[in-house]
Design a protein around this nucleic acid. Structure first.
Lengths: 256, 256
DNA sequence: GCGTAAAGGTATGAGGTCGAACCATTGACA
DNA sequence: TGTCAATGGTTCGACCTCATACCTTTACGC
């Protein structure tokens, strides 16, 4: 190991420590692509995951640009992209009439062929999820939640139970997971869960939904929310771990 | 709740669901600043955290640019910045002689005045760390590690014990935490731990080091590595949780 | 009704970023 | 000792991104 690093390049001199592969691993890119594509993808994810349900209004462009850390010009390009994809409509003038969500919610729109190319990324998302989402539950249960935060959780839970079809159920599901993350009030946790749920969503819409799985999931969701509201951090985390494990087992078979 | 969202903007129409604040939280910006600054910061962090120890050689520019997801031109600007800051030196020609790390390792270089401005970000890092690093231990302990991965852990542990001064100790410490993340082989976990350690480093170099704390830390480090090598995931996680809690308690007092 | 404020739509110039090609240097290997 | 391949250094044009204005539309409040 002192002869060279794992990349095969020899160390420069006899006395110099080998960099191991730690260095390369630490510097991996997360700055993906252009701001424009990034913006489109994040908006599309937010909509697909139910953060902006069908019929809701996006924040004003100027405000949204600040939130997302891009210029208004770039944001407008992204919105134009979503518009031509049929995800949003735009009206002018004062008041709520700005950009409205028009979620397609196509059931079974899963493009399973593309998933194979992203296999590594998606498998990693399952590993990371198993760490982050139970952690979010632990943190959420440890906080003293305000009444409206408790409502966000119970409302999201109720929305799952009353989902009309499979697509609506899928969206309500991810919405609950995002809601749990949001009540932690930790930007880092919210960001991690959002990223994980986006990948998870791509996988879940590609597999058929079995009623038995849905009922099992719903029971876990109820237990998780109850544990969070009751302040039982360990139990909330443990239940979410089981939930992640079950979903992961279901999905790992999907990608060979 | 159906009257308007938490941002104070009224809902567009009577039938439209309110977006709650979920949407805004999910879209928060992680695309920070320019690629150039981002690049400088990540390289500087990697060096300060010990991923590239003093005297080691960085990968070739072309390769590094791909790894970090920036163009070679941008990467070169970043390296030029580090060079003028005295962190690296550059030689030309074939072989290992390319860019050599020249870590200053200034003891007590902590700029405590700047930390106050970043209070929110740093407090969040402590919360996220308490989720991510124990999770990394759990995952690492659950894997069957190859011999060289086990060496990475034991070497990093030994380097802490034999650190000459406080600065070297600090670097060896973060290096162990990065090593634990790296043996999970999960890019997402490595990325999260790197980010968290960078913030942690900024805080830790700003406080005085007490021998009693160091000994306590070292005992925890030994227990963590032992648990990971022994495959005891629960114990590895639990011990890392205590470790994070202890450090966090020490640091939370630092920022009012 | 009418004025005004709150939104989206448009234009422009500065500077950042990229990709690709080519030059210059120097150690490794025959 | 000479060749050459690996690596840093340099240049250039295309495109992206940003910030800042200013215009247009439309609902809300008086």
């Amino acid at each position: 190991m002192s002869a060279g690093d794992p990349n095969g390049r020899p160390a420069a001199g006899p006395g110099r420590p080998a960099p191991v592969e730690l260095g390369a691993a630490v510097l991996a890119a997360n700055r993906g692509r252009h701001a424009f594509e990034d913006c489109v993808e994040r908006l599309a994810s937010a909509i697909r995951l139910g953060a902006f349900p069908d019929g809701s209004v996006l924040p004003p462009e100027r405000e949204l640009a600040v939130t997302m850390g891009v210029s208004r010009a770039t944001l407008r390009e992204a919105i134009a992209g979503l518009r031509s994809a049929g995800m949003v409509k735009t009206t002018r003038g004062r008041g709520g009439g700005t950009v409205v969500v028009h979620a397609p919610l196509l059931p079974g729109a899963g493009d399973a062929s593309r998933l194979a190319e992203r296999r590594g990324e998606l498998m990693d998302a399952l590993v990371f999820r198993r760490v982050v989402e139970p952690g979010a539950c632990y943190v959420a249960a440890g906080r003293s939640l305000r009444p409206e935060q408790r409502s966000v959780l119970t409302d999201a839970l109720a929305a799952i139970e009353s989902a009309a079809d499979a697509a609506a159920h899928r969206q309500a599901d991810s919405r609950l997971h995002l809601a749990i993350a949001s009540v932690t009030e930790s930007p880092a946790i919210i960001n991690a869960v959002t990223s994980v749920q986006a990948d998870l969503h791509d996988m879940l819409i590609a597999i058929p939904v079995l009623p038995v799985n849905i009922e099992h999931s719903s029971a876990q969701h109820r237990a998780i929310v109850a544990a969070i509201l009751g302040g039982d951090a360990r139990r909330a985390r443990r239940t979410m771990e089981s939930h992640c494990d079950d979903t992961a087992a279901l999905l790992r078979g999907l990608l060979t």
